[in-house]
Amino acid sequence: MRVMVMVKATKDSEEGVMPGPELFEAMGKFNEELVKAGIMLNGDGLKPSSQGKRIAFDGPKRTVIDGPFAETRELVAGFWVWEVKDMAEAIEWAKRCPNPMPGPSELEIRPFYEMADFADVLTPEIVERDGRLRDQLKDR
């Protein structure tokens, strides 16, 4: 089962405060553990939302909104993609993560949808179109 583990933003991360050397080292060690456990697929940190954009949709209208965005606790500051056996394993690994922020912080674990979840919703045509799009995105 594939999950995304999101590091939620804090005031510090939104201000672009870089982690101190100790956290950097602890996080490096944790990442190494994830690799050695064979569950790590991907992971990275995200810059503060002040450098982000939002595209708002309303019918045919599109509006570009500049960061920063207000609701800090709902923002994402970093992520991993893990391949785990089940949610219990993901929780266990997430608990072992060093606190990613200087103050109180949160990780959020979300399982990926799998093709089987869509079986009733997607027609072959949609799958096909989705495929062409992804093919164009790939190989950037």
Binding site: N42, M115, V127, E128, D130, G131, R132, L133, D135
Partner: peptide, 13 residues
């Protein structure tokens, strides 16, 4: 094969 069904994260990795 429908290449949309390929796991592109896995290919990347």
């Amino acid at each position: 094969q429908n290449r949309a069904l390929w796991d592109h994260l896995l290919i990347h990795h």
